[in-house]
């Protein structure tokens, strides 16, 4: 069976661009449409969702919540996500946002880990996970370029929080526009702005978190 599979692959390799395997086709269609995100975030992304192999820089006061909201729908669709150096996350709140916790792994480098080790860990993670949400990864610019290339090759989406040395494909700024407070904290209105290297810009006003702890569109 394996021999036949290899021979089919070698035949296909001789006909680049004309014949595709279902896997290649899937990668292409995923790249075309982006990975699924909740409806309130779809207008933000040029392809309606987070793109595989793309590095996003998430900044602003609500960056952590936004990163979780962005991957929520995909994890429910059986994608795997890894939180790198984000051990302080409240998984209860992450679950409220909509992230499927059974598809989540948390990786925390030791304090003594060198930047080279951190880079190797991150590089390994982007090979296996559909999403890697990384908090301030310490790595040299050359290692960052290698990780970005690896993410592109393996179709992993990387969302960066905090300081880093990566040259990102897009910057997403999530800033708090209003805290809604009655007898307790009820919700938070967040303005999200998307900018990418092609100078495409989009923005959305969302409630993150809403009264249930998840994300919803802001009522006009």
């Amino acid at each position: 069976m394996e021999t036949r599979s290899t021979s089919v692959q070698s035949v296909l390799a001789q006909m680049p661009g004309t014949v595709s395997t279902a896997q290649q086709l899937l990668q292409r269609t995923t790249a075309l449409h982006g990975r699924p995100v909740v409806p309130s975030l779809q207008p933000l992304f040029p392809r309606g969702g987070l793109e595989p192999g793309v590095i996003y820089d998430c900044c602003g006061q609500a960056a952590v919540s936004f990163a979780c909201a962005a991957i929520a729908a995909s994890t429910q669709d059986n994608a795997w996500a890894c939180f790198f150096n984000l051990s302080s996350l409240n998984m209860q709140a992450v679950a409220d946002i909509g992230v499927a916790l059974h598809r989540v792994v948390s990786a925390q480098c030791s304090e003594k880990a060198t930047s080279s080790q951190q880079a190797h860990v991150l590089a390994s993670l982007v090979e296996g996970f559909d999403f890697v949400v990384a908090q301030s990864p310490r790595c040299t610019p050359s290692a960052a370029r290698a990780i970005a290339a690896r993410a592109q090759r393996h179709g992993s989406t990387v969302l960066l929080l905090g300081q880093h040395t990566f040259r990102t494909d897009a910057v997403i700024t999530a800033n708090v526009s209003e805290w809604v407070f009655t007898d307790r904290l009820v919700s938070r209105n967040v303005r999200v702005v998307f900018n990418d290297r092609q100078h495409r810009r989009a923005s959305a006003q969302v409630v993150l978190p809403n009264a249930q702890g998840s994300i919803s569109s802001c009522a006009a």
């Binding site: 948390s106 003594k112 860990v121 390994s124 996970f129």
Partner: peptide, 27 residues
């Protein structure tokens, strides 16, 4: 989508090799 859990397991195994003191946990 296929279940790529095995790919994740192998990636985590490689991550542990890179930093054997890394904490790999699941909630």
């Amino acid at each position: 989508r296929s279940d790529n859990t095995e790919r994740v397991v192998r990636a985590l195994a490689r991550a542990v090799v890179a930093d054997e003191h890394a904490q790999i946990t699941v909630p």
